[in-house]
Simulated assay, not measured.
Amino acid sequence: MFTGIVEELGEVIKLVGEKGNLHITVAARMTPELKIDQSVAHNGVCLTVVNVEGQSYTVTAINETLEKTNLGMLKEGDLVNLERGMQLGARLDGHIVQGHVDQIGICKSVRQEEGSWIYTFEYDPTRNNITIEKGSITVNGVSLTVINSKKSEFSVAIIPYTYDNTSFQNLREGATVNLEFDVIGKYVKRLTELK
């Protein structure tokens, strides 16, 4: 379980394919605090630490993960949003995030406003995911509030702190992002479909 509050940006320093898997090695300041078997969200995807060495660690993404997320598009030198699992008893500053990406989306536009940025994303509505105005969404692991909710697209407003401390600083029009829709909204939608 995660909150969508990014702890730091990690740098992808090595990518190794093995059969249908991809081993991703990341350099990050948090590395000395990690241990094997620990869960870390990478652009919103929960992955298990399989090796820790010096200032870098390795996680493995299986083929299914690569097909459903943007992790298969990573290149050495890319920055990824990192978050360790939430601690029980701590404040929940973002929203409940599972680290299970529902689908990918495409950045449709980036518009700079006075002191902030508005990012608009489109997604395939046939996957039955929805957003609601002022509801929660996770984009590449970042907990955000939806504005301008439509059937197949939504926007989010990014403040300077989020821009400077997440991979939003490198996100451009046409980029593929990982989307995790609000877990409570998914359950409510499913329950209404069953009636």
Rank of each mutant, 00 (worst) to 15 (best):
M1S: 10
F2G: 04
F2Y: 13
F2K: 10
G4T: 08
V6Y: 11
L15W: 07
V16E: 15
V16T: 15
E18H: 13
K19V: 03
H23G: 01
I24C: 12
A27P: 02
A28V: 11
T31R: 14
P32E: 00
K35S: 08
D37M: 15
D37G: 11
A41F: 01
V45Q: 00
L47G: 11
V50A: 09
V50T: 14
Q55A: 11
Q55V: 02
T60N: 02
A61M: 01
A61D: 05
A61Q: 02
T65A: 03
T69S: 07
L74S: 03
K75T: 09
N81M: 08
L82S: 07
E83T: 08
A90P: 00
R91G: 00
L92C: 08
D93V: 05
V97F: 03
I104T: 15
C107S: 03
K108H: 07
S109W: 11
Q112I: 06
G115W: 05
T120V: 11
D124Q: 08
T126Q: 13
N128V: 05
T131I: 13
K134T: 06
G135S: 14
G141A: 14
V142G: 00
S143A: 13
V146S: 01
I147K: 03
N148I: 09
K150S: 10
K150I: 06
K151P: 01
K151S: 06
S152Q: 15
F154S: 02
S155D: 10
I159W: 13
Y161D: 15
N165H: 14
T166R: 08
T166A: 06
L179Y: 00
E180D: 07
F181P: 03
D182T: 10
V183G: 05
Y187M: 11
V188A: 07
L191D: 04
K195C: 06
